[in-house]
Simulated scan of single mutants.
Amino acid sequence: MLTAVRGALAFLTRLPVGGGEAGWDAFRRTPAAFVVAGYVVGGLAALPLLLPVPVSTAAALYLATLYLVTGVTHVDGLADCGDAAAAHGADDRRSALKDSRIGVGGLLVVGLALLALAFGALGVAGAGPRIAARLILASEVSAKVGMATLAALGTPGHEGLGSAVVGESNGAALLPVVVAAAPAALLAPAGATPALVVTLLAGPAVALPVGRWATAHLGGVTGDALGAANELARVVALHAGVVAWTLW
């Protein structure tokens, strides 16, 4: 598992963990490594929420920390999927995925996603440091559960690093994924468990429709689709957690 986690961190972040070919191969066969990497990313991204700074500053620092740790690879995947969704016909969609330029569809979906993430971060920061940090952590774990679900259940698309992760395991690999994600909800302050459970469920609930869309329109789950699922799942999970915490 440790080798697989190093491979996951090398694939999902900019952290200098090495990994190499052995890490990559172990990661491809171990969807639960997505989730463990989510704890690392979420834990680092949550640190600004623990600082004695204004809510708006904490939210801004969260965004900065998140993308310093993860880079923009998954955002680029979201942009490519946005351009593909705006295109007409299979050939145009494939061309949009390969085009290094960002079109109107990509700009729109990335802009909306970042805006929604910023508002979600503001809402989370207002919940207080202890709850905020746990919601940030759970939203990142949730997004990685979504990616792991697509890796285990999806049909690989065109050849590439992302699609090479898909189809290397099966539904049985999701049991370790659930076990790995459970502590994000179980180790919670009194009254926070329902919100954290909702947060964790949101990720795969978003990723599965993204996977179905990619299969129908892109020929399978590609690296761009995995990236899009990650970014969208994080946003929805964060808002779902804030709403659940506010209501319950």
Score class of each variant (00 low, 15 high):
residue 81 C to Y: 08
residue 136 I to Q: 14
residue 166 V to Q: 11
residue 124 V to F: 12
residue 10 A to T: 02
residue 42 G to W: 07
residue 3 T to L: 14
residue 18 G to L: 02
residue 233 A to H: 05
residue 49 L to A: 10
residue 214 A to P: 04
residue 242 V to T: 09
residue 90 A to Y: 15
residue 2 L to N: 10
residue 192 A to L: 15
residue 110 V to F: 05
residue 151 A to W: 09
residue 212 R to F: 14
residue 187 L to P: 02
residue 217 H to Q: 14
residue 241 G to E: 10
residue 138 A to Q: 00
residue 221 V to G: 10
residue 234 R to C: 02
residue 51 L to M: 11
residue 25 D to Q: 15
residue 28 R to D: 06
residue 104 V to C: 12
residue 177 V to Y: 09
residue 44 L to A: 07
residue 33 A to Q: 04
residue 242 V to L: 09
residue 179 V to Q: 13
residue 129 P to Y: 01
residue 147 M to R: 10
residue 142 S to D: 05
residue 67 Y to A: 10
residue 96 A to L: 08
residue 143 A to L: 04
residue 224 D to S: 05
residue 211 G to S: 07
residue 51 L to V: 07
residue 207 A to M: 05
residue 193 T to A: 15
residue 134 R to A: 10
residue 38 G to S: 06
residue 64 A to R: 00
residue 85 A to I: 00
residue 118 A to Q: 11
residue 146 G to C: 02
residue 212 R to S: 14
residue 235 V to T: 04
residue 116 A to E: 06
residue 41 V to L: 12
residue 96 A to C: 06
residue 163 S to D: 10
residue 231 E to A: 13
residue 43 G to K: 07
residue 224 D to R: 06
residue 82 G to M: 11
residue 242 V to M: 01
residue 64 A to E: 02
residue 146 G to E: 00
residue 31 P to G: 00
residue 241 G to P: 06
residue 160 G to D: 06
residue 119 F to D: 05
residue 169 S to P: 03
residue 114 L to H: 12
residue 243 V to L: 15
residue 129 P to A: 01
residue 170 N to I: 02
residue 20 G to R: 08
residue 206 V to K: 02
residue 179 V to N: 13
residue 202 A to M: 11
residue 246 T to Y: 09
residue 131 I to R: 13
residue 225 A to Q: 06
residue 123 G to V: 10
residue 191 G to Q: 02
residue 226 L to S: 00
residue 202 A to L: 11
residue 114 L to Y: 08
residue 127 A to T: 13
residue 214 A to F: 07
residue 5 V to I: 14
residue 33 A to R: 05
residue 107 L to T: 13
residue 48 P to R: 01
residue 155 T to H: 14
residue 8 A to C: 09
residue 88 H to F: 14
residue 159 E to C: 01
residue 7 G to T: 05
residue 40 V to G: 03
residue 137 L to V: 15
residue 76 D to S: 13
residue 140 E to R: 12
residue 48 P to S: 04
residue 180 A to T: 05
residue 91 D to N: 08
residue 117 L to K: 15
residue 170 N to G: 15
residue 107 L to A: 15
residue 1 M to D: 11
residue 73 T to F: 14
residue 32 A to F: 00
residue 127 A to P: 00
residue 190 A to V: 14
residue 89 G to L: 12
residue 18 G to I: 01
residue 153 L to I: 02
residue 142 S to H: 03
residue 46 A to F: 02
residue 190 A to M: 11
residue 58 A to H: 03
residue 201 L to P: 09
residue 121 A to N: 03
residue 230 N to Q: 11
residue 186 L to K: 07
residue 6 R to S: 11
residue 27 F to H: 03
residue 186 L to A: 15
residue 141 V to S: 08
residue 122 L to P: 01
residue 82 G to S: 12
residue 108 L to W: 12
residue 71 G to H: 03
residue 194 P to S: 09
residue 68 L to M: 03
residue 128 G to C: 11
residue 111 G to P: 06
residue 230 N to P: 00
residue 15 L to K: 03
residue 192 A to Q: 13
residue 2 L to W: 14
residue 47 L to I: 13
residue 120 G to H: 08
residue 41 V to H: 08
residue 170 N to R: 15
